[in-house]
Write a protein that binds this DNA or RNA. Structure first.
Lengths: 247, 247
DNA sequence: CGGATGCCTTGACCGAGATCAAGTGGATGA
DNA sequence: TCATCCACTTGATCTCGGTCAAGGCATCCG
């Protein structure tokens, strides 16, 4: 097996995603109960964590790295339907089979719980269920936002939308904040971007070049992006430019 | 005001959506608590029930009729991001402002709860919170399914996908079942279908004509649809044809 | 060093679906 | 009975993004 199992090498108190994950609202008792059943697991970039249709034996939280949820048609067309960032929840309590492939985009670490014990714990731990409901509602909002991107935006707007989402999520995880130029590394290949946006990788490449040519973004190498003017990027994305940053 | 407020003219026990709505798992006590705070409200076809950005004062369940969730860009491009059918939940506990327009597609009746009392009730009524979590997870699945349709399917496949979804949901609400030809009335205009599918109404019209010409569907008038062979339609939709009907 | 390999870019061309425009048919109402 | 309106259909043309193809540029490995 090419993954490692760690026994819990870190206390929940020190956990970098402690305040944003499914355990965010837990009190000390609840945290201890979770600590009982949790274990860490690492996956390498490119590895499939869960196969669509497989039995799901665990759920968990993303601790570090990036993973994607993808759907594939018989003829090979694929669509990414979710991007999993640190603190996001993976898996679905109350359902036995995975509806999507979950693939590690970068090396990742997950904090896992066996599904059965987690479900039992959830039944008597309203703080977990409540938090999970909030997170699911947020994901639903994000999915619907994405439906507008997929259904109605042009290729250029799609790219700008993706860049602005990544930039904002990145800013919310690091100290940087949103003032001044934003700098980050794209965690996705051109192909993954295409799968997210319902485009081909050629179109992604062309539009990236166009945004660069027009000064909307700066590119160093293929992945290192600087956004000199976030407002400009948001205009290109076709979004309301008047703030309202909800992450 | 062009809507009517009814005092609760029907007991929850008689409610047609009793077993599928947010109250599905409630026991007698919980049902009585809900009955205390519920009220019915009707809206006419075309009416906007909730405006994006407005304060949400109530949540509720669809009792009859169809409504849609839509997002609109400044230049008028619109994308439908959800289709609300009987038993679906409307509104978002824990959030103050509506993220989308909710528009009545047909005449509808809703079973409403003022948001504040509902949230309080939810805090001590795990059956409601649990059920709402399940329903939200289902909606998330549906949204992700739709992302594949929007991102990767052709116009013809999109139309076939929409027809098969409506046909299946219709079958699950009526006695018909899924054997033999399926017959239903389209609850959406061509324009609404276009907004759902990320197409123009002209393309919707052309593809409907094409599916009719090819014998995949029969049309009587503009709205009355017969599907002689559901398997054929699912093939046209690009879906796995091998069953697995999850509603 | 040289050949692979993976990821990306760029060009030429094509076609699905958008756009623009005209027309149909049924319902409504004066 | 006729004008109007609305939802829809159909045709002609255009265009954005897909497809096919070639090439660039790191990195890896023999």
């Amino acid at each position: 097996m090419n993954f490692q199992i760690h026994t819990d090498h870190s206390k929940c108190g020190d956990c970098p995603i402690r305040h944003r994950a499914v355990c965010a609202h837990c009190d000390q008792d609840e945290l201890e109960a979770l600590e009982e059943i949790k274990y860490y697991r690492s996956f390498e970039a490119g590895q499939t964590i869960i196969w669509s249709g497989d039995q799901m034996s665990f759920v968990g939280s993303m601790v570090s790295g990036i993973a994607s949820l993808t759907q594939t048609m018989e003829d090979g067309r694929t669509q990414m339907v979710g991007l999993l960032l640190p603190s996001d929840f993976v898996g679905r309590p109350g359902r036995d089979f995975a509806p999507y492939d979950v693939v590690a985009t970068t090396d990742i670490v997950m904090c896992c719980f066996r599904k059965k014990p987690f479900e039992e714990l959830m039944a008597h731990t309203p703080h977990i269920a409540q938090r999970l409901l909030q997170m699911t509602l947020d994901e639903l909002d994000a999915a619907r936002e994405w439906m507008l991107v997929l259904g109605r935006k042009t290729a250029r707007e799609k790219i700008a939308s993706l860049l602005s989402i990544i930039a904002r999520r990145d800013a919310s995880l690091t100290k940087g904040g949103m003032s001044g130029p934003m700098v980050f590394d794209l965690p996705l290949t051109r192909e993954a971007m295409a799968d997210y946006l319902g485009l081909t990788l050629e179109t992604v490449s062309r539009q990236m070049s166009a945004l660069k040519r027009d000064g909307v973004i700066l590119l160093e190498g293929k992945r290192h992006v600087t956004i000199p003017d976030m407002g400009r990027l948001m205009e290109e994305a076709g979004d309301d430019t008047d703030g309202g940053f909800l992450v």
